[in-house]
């Protein structure tokens, strides 16, 4: 972990595409007029003949990606998460997931950390939308190294994958790509609480863990980078081993990580889960850090929940 080594996962995504582009010429990239922001511009610069700017037309972008995939291409279609999944839901459902085509969709600028652009651009429902689609896999990496792994993994998997990425630069957590698809990463083995976190919330959860340890409260953090298929085993294991279960996500508490964990608990080991997230509301404009504080998506909130100050 290195707090000074900050990078946005969208940047890692752009870099990973370039590396993959070098080893496989069937990789093609599509964007909807946001290549500078999604960082597909890095790929466009390196491989202009395999980059397609589709203009401000996300539905067409998804359909075009579907067509390319039927002819052996491996398309990554990228834009802001709000448009990649919300604007295009029917295209993703019918032209990608139903025929189980080899299309990768990258949604950058997910969650409230989009900041100043406000609610229209802060996608808080994308995990729910994508998770509900048959054949779709959902990856939500937490740092640079994990994002690079996630992009390679999405490339390796035959079939649709959604990758949830962020605008805000966050600290580096991992030194190596030691991850397994569908398997959560456990940090520590404290028994007071388990914090299930995903994406840019993993760092906050690790901060909370460190702070609590100073007071002698030992918790564990589980980084859920694969939201679908979710790691059922680790959820049940933690439910059995720890006193309290908490989830945190920069996403609505409806349909996202907390919901996915609740489903596993309901099926296999009924237990109370505190879900920290956006409580069925839209975001608003502001600086990312201010918003995280305003909506209580941070280490302080986790600490309050662990200590029962806030009882969700």
């Amino acid at each position: 972990m290195d707090i000074n080594q900050k990078k946005a996962t969208r940047q890692s995504f752009g870099e990973a595409l370039v590396e993959l582009g070098k080893i496989n010429e069937n990789l093609v990239v599509l964007d909807s007029d946001l290549s500078a922001a999604t960082k597909t511009s890095l790929f466009a610069k390196e491989f202009p003949e395999r980059f397609f700017d589709m203009g401000i037309a996300e539905q067409d972008m998804i359909g075009t990606a579907a067509g390319l995939s039927t002819c052996g291409k491996i398309p990554f279609a990228a834009t802001f998460a709000a448009f990649a999944t919300g604007r295009t839901y029917d295209q993703v459902r019918n032209s990608v997931c139903y025929p189980n085509l080899n299309v990768k969709i990258a949604g950058t600028h997910s969650g409230i950390t989009v900041g100043e652009d406000g609610a229209t651009h802060q996608m808080l429902e994308d995990i729910g939308l994508m998770r509900g689609l048959p054949n779709m896999r959902v990856l939500s990496p937490s740092d640079d190294m994990q994002t690079k792994w996630a992009i390679e993994e999405a490339f390796r998997i035959e079939g649709p994958v959604y990758i949830r990425l962020c605008r805000l630069a966050t600290p580096s957590i991992y030194d190596e790509k030691n991850f397994e698809f569908g398997k959560g990463m456990m940090h520590g083995n404290g028994t007071e609480a388990t914090i299930f976190a995903t994406g840019d919330m993993v760092w906050s959860a690790l901060q909370a863990k460190e702070e609590l340890a100073k007071e002698g409260i030992e918790i564990r953090v589980v980084d859920i980078h694969t939201i679908k298929p979710i790691d059922r085993e680790i959820i049940v294991k933690c439910a059995k081993e720890t006193k309290k279960l908490i989830s945190i996500e920069d996403h609505s508490i409806i349909g996202g990580l907390g919901t996915a964990i609740s489903e596993v608990l309901t099926d296999e080991y009924p237990a109370k889960l505190m879900r920290i997230g956006m409580n069925d509301i839209f975001g608003k404009s502001g600086k990312a850090q201010e918003l995280l504080e305003y909506f209580e998506l941070n280490a302080e909130k986790i600490i309050k929940c662990v200590k029962n100050v806030d009882n969700l």
Binding site: E49, D60, T64, G67, L68, S69, T70, C71, D90, P99
Partner: peptide, 25 residues
């Protein structure tokens, strides 16, 4: 059957993708 269809309005985009792939290859 070269493409699954049913939800109207989506086929031309898919056909474009196939045509682009032909050009690339």
């Amino acid at each position: 059957v070269d493409m699954s269809t049913g939800s109207l309005g989506q086929g031309l985009s898919v056909a474009n993708g196939m045509a682009l792939a032909a050009k690339l290859d």
